[in-house]
């Protein structure tokens, strides 16, 4: 059933990716494809490199000094680590939602409009339109439409996280990276985000890092298991969770370690 609507077009390919923090090798020859309009879950124990890998995809690691990247990551056949690539533009095309909700200390409206404004959109009507659309997409509209001009910090944690998703969607990225987006949320808020991920995949390619095995099973089409900086196994979620090829994967999924 799942396989039937899988379009097997790779949107992002990582090939032989090595990543170093100073002398420490944090990622060891990672090669993986992320397909268009699919949700891929990255799982693995803490410190396995899954978040580091995620942050390679929009070059967020560039902010850290002393890092080094080898190998390549291509988005639509374009190497994102080539100096030809403008990182700013890249990040606009690849949205990111962070572990903890991090709304700006601005109004709800300003938060969502921010990405549009820095990217040069000046048309007020257009901004308003897009803000509404993004907040609706993030399933937050009914809750905040009366108070768009209140501070975003007055929202609950779950609402803040959905606002951050809306903020990421507003610039119409092609890919959405989510770094444990529910780890700071309660079960009800988590459920809402998961439903959201399900609808969003119609439009976006989504890569989600999660600690939560059930979440990976519920939300993703493909699951990739990371351990000690290596990609141990990647495949259709159903397969990974029912009959993984590697022993490590099975041990992790069945809760024997991690």
């Amino acid at each position: 059933m799942k396989a039937s609507h899988m379009t097997q077009t790779p949107k992002i390919t990582a090939h032989n990716l090595n990543f170093y923090y100073g002398k420490v090798k944090a990622l060891d020859s990672i090669s993986i494809d992320f397909n268009l309009n699919q949700v891929t879950a990255l799982i693995g124990p803490s410190g396995c490199g899954k978040s580091t890998f995620l942050r390679c995809l929009n070059r967020m690691n560039d902010l850290i000094t002393g890092i080094r990247v080898e190998g390549e990551i291509k988005i639509d056949d374009q190497d994102i680590y080539a100096p030809a690539v403008d990182v700013v533009n890249l990040r606009r095309r690849i949205g990111m939602v962070f572990q903890k909700p991090n709304p700006f200390p601005k109004t709800i409206f300003e938060n969502v409009a921010y990405g549009l404004k820095v990217n040069g959109v000046t048309d007020k009507n257009l901004i308003a339109e897009r803000v509404e659309k993004s907040i609706r997409q993030a399933a937050l509209w009914e809750e905040v439409k009366e108070r768009l001009h209140d501070s975003a910090l007055g929202l609950s944690g779950g609402q803040q996280q959905r606002l951050c998703i809306a903020r990421a969607l507003a610039v119409e990225p092609e890919v959405l990276l989510m770094d444990e987006p529910c780890s700071a949320l309660d079960p009800i808020a988590t459920q809402k985000i998961e439903e959201l991920i399900h609808t969003l995949k119609e439009t976006y390619t989504i890569i989600i890092v999660t600690h939560n095995m059930q979440q990976a099973a519920r939300t993703s089409d493909v699951t990739a298991f990371f351990y000690m900086g290596k990609l141990i196994e990647a495949g259709e979620t159903d397969t990974i969770f029912t009959k993984p090829a590697k022993r490590r994967t099975e041990e992790y999924i069945t809760g024997r370690f991690g």
Binding site: N58, M60, L63, V88, N89, L90, R91, R92, R93, I94, G95, M96, F98, K100, N102, P103, F104, P105, K106, Y114, G115, K117, V118, N119, C164, R167, A168, V171
Partner: peptide
């Protein structure tokens, strides 16, 4: 100013300078 705010801005495609002016300085 929390690094998460700066990251959020950069991840939306703001330049470092725009992030400083629109997020870091106001905060």
């Amino acid at each position: 100013v929390p690094a998460s705010l700066k990251e959020a801005s950069l991840a939306l495609g703001a330049t470092s300078f725009e992030t400083i002016v629109k997020v870091t300085l106001p905060a």
